[in-house]
Design a protein around this nucleic acid. Sequence first.
DNA 1: CGGCATCCGCCAAGATACTG
DNA 2: CAGTATCTTGGCGGATGCCG
Lengths: 140, 140
Amino acid sequence: MTTEETARTGAEPQAEQEHDVFAQLCPSREMFAELADKWSLLILMSLSACGPQRFSELQRGVGGVSRKMLTQSLRNLERSGLVLRTVFPETPPRVVYDLRPLGRELAELVAPLGHWTERRARQMLAAREEFDAAHPEGSR
Amino acid sequence: MTTEETARTGAEPQAEQEHDVFAQLCPSREMFAELADKWSLLILMSLSACGPQRFSELQRGVGGVSRKMLTQSLRNLERSGLVLRTVFPETPPRVVYDLRPLGRELAELVAPLGHWTERRARQMLAAREEFDAAHPEGSR
DNA sequence: CGGCATCCGCCAAGATACTG
DNA sequence: CAGTATCTTGGCGGATGCCG
């Protein structure tokens, strides 16, 4: 029996405080749900790839993100200890975001995911066309 | 200049058909956006950790997922060539989902992300409490 | 510049009931 | 069992405007 299976057949849901992303009400699931979204992952990847960046740099870097979503996602990442926000009290003010050790750890796991997607995108698109051709809408 | 930066300062957006998840309208971004969601990632992790599973097994395995979202996410994964859906024409019918090579590749990148979240959940929760304590709501 | 507040459309996602 | 169909709604996420 693997570690995963052990966790999921789990004896005590919280006796030893084991975390299990598969469990609906486990704290780790809540964290996972917050991290597992488009913008958060792209922000982590951008900070990891390009180093510390200002708000507007991030907005340009992560194509299509609105100021609102960027602010929200950054706030979440900051709140969870993944990202450090530094304000330089100049005029105009300058705000720089950077990865904290925890965030850098995560970013190094996320980056491969992005690269994989880029490498395999074409293949997945081809699979789609084939699938769509085989299922002319409304079969099944 | 890193590979990432090269891609993002990108000379030709589509000349060499380079894919860039940071670009809003790049196909790879579309794929990334579909994969980078809670349910899809958890399904991939479940299939990777526990092997081929039936619909209802998956629903039990991935805590809190509704039949609708499970169906939708599985359909997407199948459509993109990541997951294989096999119907055994019995009564009652049996449908088994399994990873295809492409999906297995991805799942092996995603699994570490889940494990990391479980390992660091406590730490992130602590960071949150500290953050929330330092920002008693409505500061800034 | 780097936000926060507000309004709002619209789609994701839950609940429920029905089918093969 | 493994879905599909329909309805409803919460909240994601965009647009805009104001502030420090």
